[in-house]
């Protein structure tokens, strides 16, 4: 499985498909951190939310890079389950690279500031840790959405793009304050809000967000596995 994930990562990077999402990542990060400095938790919370759609797009690109027949050859070699898992693993590794870039991005821009004394804001270290958590939660949801929009599921190009765009838009719309069904989308917006409230969110809130993200991701990946079973 790891060898297949490595082969797919190499195939994606050599194909040149990484360029467009990389430009998108840089644009998002420079717009986010280029303005006034914010406390780290808030800055990272919104960076995770803004990168969600790009991370889902990267997942789709990684899964769609190899020709359909090559995907079937991989399936014959390692079995259906490990073939699907290797694709997600390759996308996760590349997604983690983007998250690392997002964590480092505020440094050259001077995009984060130390907590104001007496404001109750979390320390910079805690803020950075919260930022790491926010990016990981966004990556989980993005992997699942990207997988569902992959060609192995949608078979044709246009439905795949439709799933990706609709999913990304719904994640924002359903995540807005006062949404009627926030649980239909991964908690990307809810995490960003929780991290920008000034004080550090309570442990219970963080656990709730992590559980929500994990459950949503598990449900979406179960659907992915089910859809992949009948499709080669």
């Amino acid at each position: 499985m790891i060898a297949l994930a490595r082969m797919r990562t190499a195939g994606f990077l050599r194909s040149g498909r990484a360029l467009a999402p990389l430009v998108a990542v840089l644009v998002v990060l420079s717009v986010l951190h280029g303005g006034a400095a914010s406390p780290p938790a808030s800055a990272y919370g919104y960076s995770a939310a803004a990168l969600f759609a790009v991370l889902a797009w990267i997942t789709k690109l990684v899964l769609d890079t190899e020709p359909d027949v090559q995907r079937r050859l991989a399936r014959v070699a390692v079995g259906g389950l490990r073939e699907a898992a290797a694709g997600l693993l390759a996308a996760a590794v590349l997604g983690l690279g983007v998250c690392l870039l997002a964590m480092l991005a505020p440094i050259p821009f001077g995009g984060i500031r130390s907590p104001l004394p007496g404001s109750g804001e979390p320390s910079t270290a805690v803020g950075v840790l919260l930022g790491v958590l926010a990016h990981l939660l966004a990556l989980l949801g993005a992997l699942a959405l990207g997988a569902l929009s992959g060609r192995a599921v949608t078979r044709r190009v246009l439905p795949g793009v439709a799933v990706l765009v609709t999913g990304s838009v719904l994640t924002v719309v359903l995540g807005l304050r006062g949404s009627i069904a926030p649980w239909l989308a991964p908690p990307v917006m809810a995490t960003a809000r929780a991290l920008s409230e000034g004080t550090a969110p309570a442990a219970g809130v963080l656990l709730g967000l992590a559980g929500w993200a994990l459950l949503w991701c598990a449900a979406a990946l179960a659907l992915y596995a089910r859809l992949r079973r009948g499709r080669s």
Partner: peptide, 9 residues
Amino acid sequence: PERFPAAQP
């Protein structure tokens, strides 16, 4: 396969 998927880098 009938046609080898040669479009790979």
